[in-house]
Design a protein around this nucleic acid. Structure first.
Lengths: 199, 199
DNA sequence: GGAGTTCTTGACTGTTCGGTCCACCATAAG
DNA sequence: CTTATGGTGGACCGAACAGTCAAGAACTCC
């Protein structure tokens, strides 16, 4: 019927996400977006709307992906407590530290735009509530499995774990060396979650 | 000898800091800076250099102030453990949550500019190392006072506390309600620091 | 009061920004 | 082949940007 698109939407969104992630929203110009996507201005606008709409689309797909990964990781791990430890100790598995060094796109966006843009704040809030619920479910499972004291409130512990994880990612952003980061992650995991070394 | 300045440098820096804190670096225009400071462009440039220099000046004074406050709080509290709890539970004393809602200027700046500007990252790194050292001293004092196990590494615990505190401030930024924030802070403090209720 | 010095103000500049628009192109259906 | 449909890419626009500069104002010293 008509001329087909010459680009793959997902590839473009991925490239744009990398750009926003590296440079932030304000520091990313339309020229940057054209460069990383290989598209002209007209195509970008026709396909994704203006810069802000494109940004939100990327942000939504990012949080959806992360929640999916989190859901999967929490569900697949045989013992729930291990999944929770993994959540905190994730930086340990990344010896170069490059993964966490640029932080979390959602967190970066919240810091950059949160005060000025209520919609970003709202999205962040809902995103973290979703994460809290996912982690809370996992905490409840760990309680059923006898690895965590049954008396504790799963949501409260989930929030504490999420705060600790965000704090760690942030420390990594500032350039904390991998050894110190690993030690800090272990320290937090040991204190927030019971030791399993005796098992 | 010459015409005296009609503005107070400290007042101007305070106003400019508020602006950068609220809107971030990129979203603050020179016009904004002129408005909040009451100065013309020429005066701003003559007194503080360009936008970037002014920003760094504000950032440095912010971290200096914060380190001073931290040093004071940690030194003045009779029992070191109480100072450490205060560090984590600070959001509880701010019932409206407005204080933490806009986060920490240093953290916001790191998130916004960290990937693109090594100088910001470097400043953030040094700033958090200073905080870690201050908190570490306080942990050591708490150990001498018998409130914390002497075996633990003070710096490791200091980093864990700092990460937890940054995580809490960040959760507050996303709009977490005060009750949940308070509960999370209590939960973290209880797990990272021993309970003193039996004293 | 005059000279010298610093501060203040706002007009000005060149650049870059996000966004629009349109002429052209590639495809599929008839 | 013709025509309709949607995609493409770059020229173009007004606005906003950071930064410069010169003319005048306020002050001290002589």
């Amino acid at each position: 019927m008509a001329r087909p698109r010459t680009f793959d939407e997902k590839q473009v969104l991925d490239a744009v996400q990398e750009q926003f992630w590296d440079a932030g929203y304000a520091a990313t110009s339309l020229e940057d977006l054209m460069r990383v996507s290989g598209l002209g201005k007209g195509s970008l606008y026709a396909a994704f709307g203006d810069k802000r709409q494109l940004f939100f689309r990327v942000l939504r797909s990012y949080t959806d992906d992360r929640h999916g990964q989190l859901r999967e990781a929490l569900a697949e791990t045989p013992r729930a407590l291990d999944a929770l430890r993994m959540l905190i100790e994730a930086p340990i598995d990344d010896p170069t530290g490059t993964g966490a060094r640029r932080g979390c796109l959602m967190a970066n966006s919240t810091c950059e735009l949160g005060n000025a843009d209520p919609e970003v704040l709202d999205h962040a809030h809902r995103s973290y509530e979703t994460s809290t619920a996912l982690i809370g479910d996992c905490v409840a499972r760990a309680q059923r499995e006898g690895d965590l004291p049954a008396a504790a409130d799963p949501i409260a512990l989930a929030r504490a774990l999420l705060a600790a994880q965000q704090g760690l990612v942030f420390m990594s952003r500032t350039g904390l060396d991998t050894a110190a980061l690993t030690a800090t992650a272990r320290s937090l995991a040991d204190q927030l979650l019971p030791d399993r070394s005796g098992d």
